[in-house]
Amino acid sequence: MGLLSVDLLITLQILPVFFSNCLFLALYDSVILLKHMVLFLSRSKSGRGQTGRRSPKLQCNPHSQGQR
């Protein structure tokens, strides 16, 4: 019975450390994922705004195609 209680004591000492590490890693991964999502969304919003604009040099003018 003494060996079983030692095993149980060791198990009870290890489990909180293991679960706290898992909790920390889950929280860390969530923060990193959120950071990447915010960065991705900010880039996609800024990229979408630039595709709608054209500089005056790139606009096609059908009346000036044959003239120089």
Score class of each variant (00 low, 15 high):
9 L>A: 13
16 P>K: 02
35 K>R: 13
40 F>C: 07
31 V>S: 06
67 Q>M: 07
22 C>Y: 07
56 P>N: 03
68 R>A: 11
54 R>T: 03
33 L>F: 13
64 S>G: 01
63 H>S: 12
52 G>S: 08
38 V>R: 13
9 L>K: 14
68 R>M: 08
7 D>N: 10
11 T>L: 15
10 I>N: 06
19 F>R: 05
54 R>H: 10
18 F>M: 13
5 S>I: 07
59 Q>P: 00
50 Q>P: 01
25 L>R: 05
11 T>I: 07
23 L>N: 12
54 R>N: 08
22 C>N: 04
43 R>G: 01
2 G>T: 05
51 T>F: 04
7 D>Q: 12
53 R>Y: 07
47 G>S: 09
43 R>Y: 04
13 Q>T: 07
26 A>L: 15
2 G>Q: 08
46 S>N: 09
31 V>W: 06
68 R>I: 03
41 L>C: 12
18 F>S: 13
55 S>D: 11
66 G>L: 15
1 M>E: 09
54 R>E: 09
37 M>Q: 14
23 L>A: 09
63 H>G: 02
67 Q>S: 12
24 F>C: 02
65 Q>W: 04
5 S>V: 07
42 S>T: 10
46 S>C: 04
50 Q>S: 10
52 G>R: 05
67 Q>I: 11
1 M>F: 06
4 L>V: 03
66 G>M: 11
44 S>D: 06
20 S>C: 10
10 I>Y: 02
54 R>S: 08
20 S>D: 09
26 A>V: 12
10 I>W: 03
30 S>P: 00
11 T>N: 08
23 L>P: 00
8 L>A: 13
55 S>P: 00
7 D>H: 05
44 S>W: 06
50 Q>Y: 01
29 D>G: 06
11 T>Q: 12
31 V>D: 03
40 F>P: 01
28 Y>G: 01
18 F>V: 15
64 S>C: 05
49 G>I: 02
28 Y>M: 08
35 K>Q: 11
65 Q>N: 05
67 Q>R: 15
53 R>N: 12
50 Q>C: 06
13 Q>L: 15
4 L>C: 02
53 R>W: 04
10 I>P: 00
23 L>T: 09
24 F>M: 05
64 S>D: 08
42 S>K: 08
59 Q>F: 00
21 N>G: 04
13 Q>R: 15
40 F>E: 07
36 H>M: 08
1 M>R: 03
52 G>K: 01
27 L>V: 12
52 G>C: 00
19 F>S: 01
28 Y>N: 06
41 L>V: 08
45 K>F: 11
43 R>A: 08
25 L>C: 13
65 Q>G: 00
67 Q>C: 04
22 C>L: 13
50 Q>M: 12
2 G>I: 05
1 M>D: 07
63 H>L: 15
58 L>K: 14
57 K>I: 01
42 S>Y: 02
40 F>G: 04
4 L>N: 02
24 F>G: 04
35 K>E: 10
22 C>E: 06
13 Q>Y: 04
8 L>K: 07
57 K>H: 09
13 Q>P: 00
16 P>M: 01
12 L>K: 10
58 L>H: 12
33 L>D: 12
45 K>M: 09
25 L>Y: 08
65 Q>K: 15
6 V>W: 01
22 C>K: 13
30 S>Y: 09
39 L>E: 13
26 A>F: 15
53 R>Q: 14
16 P>Y: 00
